[in-house]
Simulated scan of single mutants.
Amino acid sequence: MATVTLANLNKQWGTFTGVSDLSLDIADGEFLVLLGSSGCGKTTTMRMIAGLEEPTSGDIRIDGRLVNGVHPRDRDLAMVFQNYGLYPHMSVAENIAYPLKIRGVGRAERTKMVQQAAERVELNALLDRKPSALSGGQRQRVALARALVRTPKLFLMDEPLSNLDAKLRTVMRAQLKHLQKELATTTIYVTHDQVEAMTLADRIAIMQGGKLQQEGTPATIYSKPANTFVAGFIGSPPMNLIEGEIADNRFSHPNGHVALSFPPASGKVILGQRPEDIALCAHDASELRGIVYASELLGDCTMVCVQLGSALVNVRVAPEEGRRIGEPVGIRLNPDKLHFFDAKTTQRIGA
């Protein structure tokens, strides 16, 4: 187990900045997820922690030890990749044992450690097979067992579930979460999938354009996004964002207005609210009025998308409350669950 400290980390290639002034403290045994879209700098950050990339400036410390310039093999970490990285000519057992073999661990001890690692990920019955005879989920578990067998201080996982189908990803998420808690090994996990981040992480660090946008627990990031990027990235569907103006104790929009007991500011703002906090109502008795753009039955609920001028607002309702496309409807916001963002800076206004 290990702590990880990133202090003012930067990575540049010529005039291009991949990571900009990133500082993070990762606690011993914590599961931290680096989340963001492609090109945001999350994988570059992981590669710098691993020693596969050297930072342009800034410090990386593992257990308080400065590791800038330290070879990857001397950082006592294990990586799990998106493409598994298995040797096709080796059996499952040989793939798992390979890190031990190159470290000079004896055959008897290797066999014992491989059995223990395989048991943790339920691979004991497959040890004699070659990777070509395994499913995607089984190959991913081989890659996990190969990382586990070394009992490193730190796990680094780069999009390890992205090649799996949706059902298998759900199963593997549960296995990963359980395994990490059982081992209590510090884990840094890179993904673009916000569902993975929300379900796996003790803490999430959201990146965009090489910069840290917000870090916190999944509950905090969901309930108090720091800016419109985070609000529009987290949630399925994400938070609704409606541009308007606050004046005379109300939020005004071309399609109606919302009375506010305690307006956070005056002037142009972006109002945010989650789909589950909005209710549909009659078109002529509502705060905001629009037209049904789409209605999707999702099984446990129906997602009704309402067009308010140029904005599309998603409303989560009961399965039987679907509406016809083109039907005039009103929406009523929950006054206790309103979020406001500065229209110019896009940063959150208020607590």
Rank of each mutant, 00 (worst) to 15 (best):
M1Q: 06
A2G: 12
A2N: 14
V4R: 07
V4Q: 01
T5D: 15
T5V: 15
L6V: 05
L6N: 10
A7P: 02
Q12P: 11
G14W: 06
G14I: 04
T17K: 14
G18Q: 05
D21G: 01
S23L: 07
D25F: 02
D28L: 13
V33W: 09
L35E: 09
C40N: 13
C40K: 09
G41Y: 10
T44V: 14
M46W: 11
M48E: 11
I49A: 02
A50Y: 12
P55H: 07
I60E: 15
R61Q: 00
G64L: 12
R65Y: 03
R65C: 07
R65L: 07
V67L: 07
N68C: 12
G69F: 03
H71T: 00
H71E: 15
R73D: 13
D74P: 03
L77E: 00
L77F: 11
V80Q: 01
F81C: 10
F81Y: 14
Q82A: 11
Y84E: 07
G85Y: 13
Y87P: 04
Y87I: 04
P88Y: 07
H89R: 01
M90A: 08
S91E: 13
E94R: 10
E94H: 12
N95Q: 03
N95I: 00
I96R: 09
I96C: 02
Y98C: 03
K101G: 10
I102D: 05
G104R: 04
V105D: 06
E109S: 08
E109Y: 04
R110G: 01
T111K: 15
K112Y: 09
V114E: 12
A117Q: 00
A118K: 06
R120P: 11
E122T: 14
N124I: 14
A125I: 14
L126N: 07
L126A: 02
D128Y: 01
S132Q: 08
A133P: 04
L134D: 02
G136C: 06
Q138P: 07
A145K: 08
T151M: 10
T151D: 14
K153L: 14
L154T: 07
L154C: 10
D158N: 09
N163S: 09
L164G: 12
K167L: 07
R169D: 02
V171N: 09
M172K: 01
M172D: 00
Q180V: 10
K181E: 02
K181F: 09
T186C: 03
A197G: 05
M198N: 03
A201F: 06
I204M: 13
G210A: 10
L212Q: 12
Q214M: 06
G216L: 14
P218N: 01
T220K: 04
Y222D: 05
A226R: 10
V230C: 00
M239T: 04
E243T: 05
G244L: 07
E245Q: 11
E245A: 09
A247S: 15
S252Y: 05
S252W: 09
H253F: 01
N255Q: 13
L260R: 15
P263T: 07
P264Q: 12
A265Y: 00
S266Q: 12
S266P: 00
K268I: 01
L271P: 01
R274K: 08
D284W: 05
A285D: 14
L288P: 02
R289Y: 03
I291N: 05
I291C: 13
Y293S: 13
L298D: 13
V304W: 06
V304L: 01
G309C: 10
A318I: 12
A318S: 12
R324I: 03
V329S: 02
L333A: 13
D336E: 11
L338Q: 08
H339L: 09
A343V: 01
